[in-house]
């Protein structure tokens, strides 16, 4: 049985749909990431699940109970806010046990939970401090600890790492994922950062303009994007897209990921272009190439690339790595594409 099930969920603000009839499920103990660009309706979806917004239509099941019209406290959820929403006048310890206290949990139980949660999140040295005496990362932990302390089966997180620096974010990704797995929590996690989605999720629900673009395991989205939107959104740098030869009257977009492209002699590639820029990352270099017909290509080369800006290069890849999309609808074309009749590459 799924832990959370959303059916036909819709929310309109002044006639504009922020969430437009979406369906998805989160399995028990799964970490499901709601991914999408800013303004696509991720937070609204999460707030609908939390009960902070009234749905215009649709049903929200937690377990097998439709909670769509229950108050937030009866939905068996906890939530971590983007701003952390810590109570500024309470100490870290008081913040963590706030919910337990309000729900009338016995004092001994509260103390025991506090000790356990503080140990898990590494907050023991800070329990007597106020939130304004903590760093951003520590505040984040307090918000996390407060969510865990309630021992609700479902935890909602709205961009919890967006206020942290890159290094801390990478650490917290691992830590949240480890905690979630250790405690067997079902987690619905909102982010616009596809790296967070790829690294943490069991399932990714990719949203665009209030609708679900594609959902599945991270590898599914990466390896078999169902639409042009998914292809461009998942992966960094984004998939290279270029118009391919038309087959049977359908304009077709072909796509290939930067790591599948090789730089070869100008005469040996499927496309020819000029090197426009080099971005050295250490482990690899992303080479920007202006290809024919004004198509911008990114090529990921291992190590330090030996290309020079302005140099003419050929772009080569295996046909197996090519993705094809209907240029009109943006949908993936499954039938194997035969129109790519360029010369095969001699590596």
């Amino acid at each position: 049985m799924s832990a959370v099930r959303i059916e036909g969920l819709t929310k309109t603000f002044d006639g504009r749909a922020a969430v437009d009839g979406i369906d998805f499920e989160v399995g028990s103990g799964e970490l499901c990431v709601l991914l999408g660009p800013s303004g696509c309706g991720k937070s609204t979806t999460l707030r609908l699940v939390a009960g902070l917004e009234e749905p215009t239509a649709g049903r929200i099941f937690v377990g097998d109970v439709d909670v769509a019209h229950l108050p937030p406290k009866d939905r068996r959820i906890s939530m971590v806010f983007q701003s952390y929403a810590l109570f500024p006048h309470l100490t870290v310890a008081q913040n963590i046990v706030f919910g337990l206290e309000v729900r009338g949990v016995a004092k001994a139980v509260r103390a025991e939970r506090l000790a356990r949660v503080a140990a898990m999140t590494g907050l023991e040295p800070y329990l007597a401090r106020k939130p304004n005496q903590l760093s951003g990362g520590q505040r984040q932990r307090v918000a996390l600890a407060r969510a865990i302390a309630g021992e609700q089966p479902i935890c909602l997180m709205d961009e919890p790492l967006s206020n942290l620096d890159a290094k801390l974010r990478a650490e917290m990704r691992l830590e949240i994922r480890a905690l979630q797995q250790r405690l067997g929590m079902t987690m619905l996690y909102v982010t616009h950062d596809q790296i967070e989605a790829m690294t943490m999720a069991d399932r990714v629900v990719l949203m665009n303009e209030g609708r679900i673009e594609q959902q599945g395991a991270p590898a599914d989205l990466y390896e078999r994007p169902a639409t042009v939107f998914t292809a461009r959104f998942v992966g960094s740098p984004a998939m290279n897209l270029f118009p391919a030869a038309e087959g049977a009257g359908h304009p077709v977009l072909a796509g290939v990921r930067p790591e599948h492209v090789r730089l070869v002699e100008p005469t040996a590639g499927r496309l020819v272009g000029r090197v426009a820029g080099l971005e050295y990352h250490g482990a690899d270099t992303v080479v920007a190439v202006d290809a024919e017909e004004g198509v911008a290509f990114a090529v990921r080369c291992p190590g330090r690339a030996r290309a020079a800006i302005g140099e003419r290069v050929g772009l080569a890849w295996d046909l197996a790595h090519e993705h094809h999309f209907d240029a009109a609808t943006g949908r993936r074309r499954e039938a194997h594409f035969t129109a790519s009749q360029r010369e095969p590459v001699t590596a």
């Binding site: 701003s83 929403a85 919910g99 309000v102």
Partner: peptide
């Protein structure tokens, strides 16, 4: 007072 304090408290059962 940030409105999300009220929301956080509501979720915690206050």
């Amino acid at each position: 007072i940030p409105p999300d304090l009220r929301e956080a408290a509501a979720i915690e059962g206050a």
